[in-house]
Amino acid sequence: MISVAVVGAETPGNVGTIARSMKNFGLSELLLVDPPELDPDGEAYGFAGQAREDVLPNAETVTFDHLAENYHTVACTATTNEDPANHVRYPATTPADLADSLRRVDGDICVVFGRERVGLTNDELSRLDVICSIPASESYPVLNLGQAATIVLYELRDLTVASDQHPEELHALAEKPAVEGLHEEFGRFLTAIGHPEEKRPKARRLFRRLLGRAQPTGRETKTLRGLFRRARQRIEHRDD
């Protein structure tokens, strides 16, 4: 299970925005450390969208000790000052890499966001398990708290959003026979266009390397094979 914690938020609207992002990406447990007052008629609920119905009213106030002692924690910070001599934790992971690393975690996970102006303190960072930083422009790397949460939770969607929204068969890698069939069709295409015979083995090797890097899905492989086949048949028909 993945929870989200917000430490020392100053603006109720940011808490509401984070609750909304949680709802967007399939998360429901919101933990608050030293939160502002969340008035049901105020901006937190106004910014929360449909999360005002469940995520926000069910938010639990906890201590920082509770987070550090009961969860595998991910500290989210806008800037890390990535210097192994000075920073508490080095290097930081990025949101894009976070989901893969969390797949190996056995137990409950909590993604922790800090204060709007100062984030998490070095003492707090030292007590958490992983640091995640969002790469941004050096000229202005500090993100709004709600923006940062949305980016991180979006990248965790493969762990939190129901898989039926993105059917696995659309993304599954093509099976070996289908890929080999595409290679054979590409070879016939080379013959049809009159590619020099002595250069065909090299062209096929290059195409094989390209497909190996691309890791096409079954649908992509089928489509490419069909395109090569139709092109070859038109060439052969023209030459008859």
Rank of each mutant, 00 (worst) to 15 (best):
M1A: 10
S3V: 01
S3D: 11
V4G: 05
A5F: 09
V7S: 04
E10Y: 08
T11A: 12
T17M: 15
I18Q: 11
A19G: 06
A19T: 10
R20F: 06
M22W: 06
K23A: 03
L27A: 06
L30H: 03
V33A: 11
V33G: 02
P35G: 05
E37G: 13
L38T: 08
Q50T: 15
Q50A: 14
A51K: 12
R52T: 08
A59T: 03
A59M: 13
E60C: 12
E60A: 14
T61Q: 15
V62Y: 04
V62E: 02
V62M: 08
F64G: 01
F64S: 01
D65V: 14
A68H: 09
N70V: 03
N70H: 15
V74G: 13
C76Q: 12
T77W: 12
A78R: 15
A78T: 12
A78M: 10
T80P: 11
A85K: 08
N86H: 15
Y90V: 10
T93Y: 01
T93E: 01
T93G: 09
T94G: 04
L98A: 05
A99G: 07
D100C: 02
D100N: 13
D100Q: 14
S101F: 03
R103S: 08
R103T: 13
R104V: 12
V105F: 09
D108S: 12
I109C: 13
I109K: 07
C110N: 11
F113D: 13
F113L: 04
G114Y: 09
T121C: 01
T121D: 06
D123P: 00
L125N: 03
D129M: 02
V130W: 04
I131P: 14
I131D: 06
I134M: 02
I134N: 07
P135Y: 00
P135D: 00
S137E: 11
Y140A: 15
P141W: 05
P141E: 05
L143Y: 07
N144M: 05
L145N: 04
A149T: 06
A149H: 12
R157N: 07
L159D: 09
L159Y: 01
L159P: 05
A162M: 07
S163H: 10
D164I: 08
Q165P: 00
Q165F: 14
H166R: 13
P167E: 02
P167R: 04
E168F: 03
L170Q: 08
L170Y: 12
L173Q: 09
K176S: 14
P177D: 09
A178G: 08
A178Q: 03
G181T: 00
G181Y: 00
G187N: 12
R188L: 04
L190P: 11
T191C: 06
A192H: 04
A192E: 06
G194K: 06
P196Q: 03
E197D: 15
K199G: 09
R200P: 07
K202Y: 13
K202L: 15
R204L: 13
R204W: 02
F207S: 06
R209C: 05
L211A: 03
G212K: 01
G212E: 01
A214G: 07
P216H: 02
T217S: 14
G218D: 07
E220F: 00
T221E: 03
T221H: 00
K222W: 07
L224G: 04
L227I: 15
R229A: 06
E236F: 02
R238H: 13
R238S: 06
D239W: 03
